[in-house]
Design a protein around this nucleic acid. Structure first.
Lengths: 144, 144
DNA sequence: TAGCGCATTGACACTAATGTCAATGTCAAG
DNA sequence: CTTGACATTGACATTAGTGTCAATGCGCTA
């Protein structure tokens, strides 16, 4: 599949796909005429990369874990057991990080929703300057 | 509280705090000498802003939901809520995906180890399912 | 064969997020 | 009063992510 079709499928620009490739994140094969050829696996990997970027990771960060983003998991299985374990640790860190963000996001959504619900019978400003939800902000500021 | 202390507390630079302010996200009061004075509420809001930025939102996006980020949470939070939920979905996708791949990697490590020496059993992971992952791939490739 | 659409590379541009530096003001302590 | 830490604003630099344009090649189809 050529770049435009791939881009359309992924809902991102061809420019971005080339950018990912230039950053070493993605390596679609080339066919005879030199055109990039995206396999379904490439598409899936690109999708993951896109998600990583959209979630605030830099291409550099994504690059360090790029092998883990392939379908096969820790890609270079032939590279040795030590490598595999190292990559596994990377994946674990990544998941931990994402879960932290996920929890923060969930908390924020919850606080939004509760705010909305008690705002529905708004009448007058309560006016307290006391911490509204200290637990949330504490947890947020303390982690990263 | 002056900017440096606030920055230290939040674990970000004073530059960033001024940047947030310039972007209209944060409006600490000023005292007589013109120095910014950060209230506890300002700190909490800054913390939320920092999390939003770190999760891939731009200051512009954050600006549209800035009112929702205050302790009082006044204003039209609906748009922000939708954005957050979208981001959460992305994160959930990634985590799910990575976890599947993590399990596959664990399995591969285990089989590698048992091939090398039938004596190694240092892992504690309960037997998961699906060493392969067609469902995941399908879901991802079909996704927006 | 001409034309159209898509591909390639490379250059330039713009914005956002940050860092850093400069020139200068404020203030507390020695 | 001088010094040192911290504040202010503003300018400039850097890096990342993207867009866009130019020059050129490939391939299908009228």
């Amino acid at each position: 599949m050529q770049i435009k079709e791939a881009a359309t499928h992924l809902k991102l620009s061809a420019r971005i796909l080339r950018h990912y490739e230039q950053a070493g994140l993605l390596t679609p094969s080339r066919d005879a005429n030199g055109y990039r050829s995206y396999s379904p696996a490439d598409l899936r990997k690109a999708s993951r990369i896109r998600d990583m970027i959209a979630t605030g990771f830099s291409t550099r960060e994504v690059l360090t874990m790029a092998p883990c983003l392939t379908d096969e998991g820790a890609g270079a299985c032939d590279a040795g057991l030590a490598d595999l374990k190292h990559k596994l640790a990377q994946i674990d860190r990544l998941i931990f990080d994402l879960q932290t963000r996920r929890r923060a996001t969930l908390d924020r959504i919850e606080s939004f929703e509760s705010t909305l619900s008690y705002r529905s019978n708004e009448r007058e400003d309560p006016g307290y300057d006391t911490p509204d939800h200290p637990a949330v902000s504490d947890r947020l500021s303390g982690r990263k």
